[in-house]
Amino acid sequence: MLIKIYTIIVITLFYLIYFGKMFIQSRKGIKTNQLGKYKHNKRVVFQEIVLRIITTTIVIVQVISIILNWSLLNTTYRYVGLVIGTLGVIVFFISIVTMRDSWRAGLTDDKTELITKGIYGFSRNPAFLGFDLVYVGVLLSYFSYFLLIVSVIAIVSLHLQILTEEKTLPSVFGEDYKQYFLNVRRYFGKKKTGM
């Protein structure tokens, strides 16, 4: 029962942070969720619509997994999952707070600031890392092959989104992004430069 309650708390906190940030930005006239609205590339639009569908689907599958108490793993793995999920919530929260009003979901023509300080000094994509950690955490806590498949598709979809964004960001932020790309890893860590 403790695992169920804590997993519900992790998922609830994660989505409260996500939708709370969107609400705060909407009150400032900022449209945060722009998945599938990028008019310059039909492939990107398709990719982002798929991402939107899969990230909605995974929430449904996670909730069903919790309600039906699916889990093929022992208690140790389930608790490890809770730790990983909690870490994901923390990473995601820190990343969107650090991004301030530059945070968007999806490619956009909005003029935003390139954030390279704080958690972004150690990860170019900490918000995506937060998503991945929450997905893995819930997967370990409520493991089923169905949730595994949906989680892998969601994580791969997020990774493809990162790769797409990395192709467009140099044209948006110029040399600053190129230097940032050379110094900070995609998911976590500084790169060794000057060798």
Rank of each mutant, 00 (worst) to 15 (best):
G20S: 14
K21G: 02
K21H: 06
F23E: 11
I24F: 10
S26H: 05
R27H: 11
G29T: 10
G29Q: 08
G29W: 03
I30M: 06
K31L: 11
T32R: 07
Q34R: 15
G36P: 05
K37F: 00
Y38K: 06
K39W: 00
H40V: 01
H40F: 09
N41M: 10
V45I: 13
F46G: 08
Q47I: 08
Q47M: 15
I49F: 03
V50S: 03
V50C: 09
V50T: 08
R52G: 06
R52V: 03
I53V: 13
I54P: 11
T55Q: 14
T57N: 14
I58G: 14
I60T: 13
V61Y: 08
V61C: 13
Q62S: 13
V63W: 00
S65L: 04
S65Y: 04
L68V: 08
N69W: 00
W70T: 12
S71L: 00
S71N: 15
L72R: 06
L72C: 02
L73I: 09
N74H: 12
Y79C: 08
G81C: 03
G81Y: 03
L82S: 14
V83T: 13
I84P: 14
T86E: 04
L87E: 05
L87C: 15
G88Q: 11
G88I: 09
V89H: 06
I90G: 07
V91G: 12
V91M: 12
F92C: 06
F92A: 15
F92M: 13
I94R: 05
I94Q: 01
I96Y: 00
I96A: 01
V97E: 04
V97M: 04
V97H: 01
V97Y: 07
M99Y: 04
M99Q: 13
D101A: 02
D101M: 00
S102I: 06
S102G: 07
R104Q: 12
A105G: 05
G106D: 07
T108Q: 14
T108Y: 13
T108W: 09
D109C: 05
D109L: 14
D110G: 10
D110M: 14
K111A: 13
T112C: 02
T112G: 04
E113D: 15
L114S: 01
T116S: 07
K117R: 13
K117S: 15
K117F: 03
G118W: 01
I119W: 00
Y120H: 15
Y120S: 11
G121K: 02
G121W: 00
F122Y: 15
F122K: 11
S123M: 06
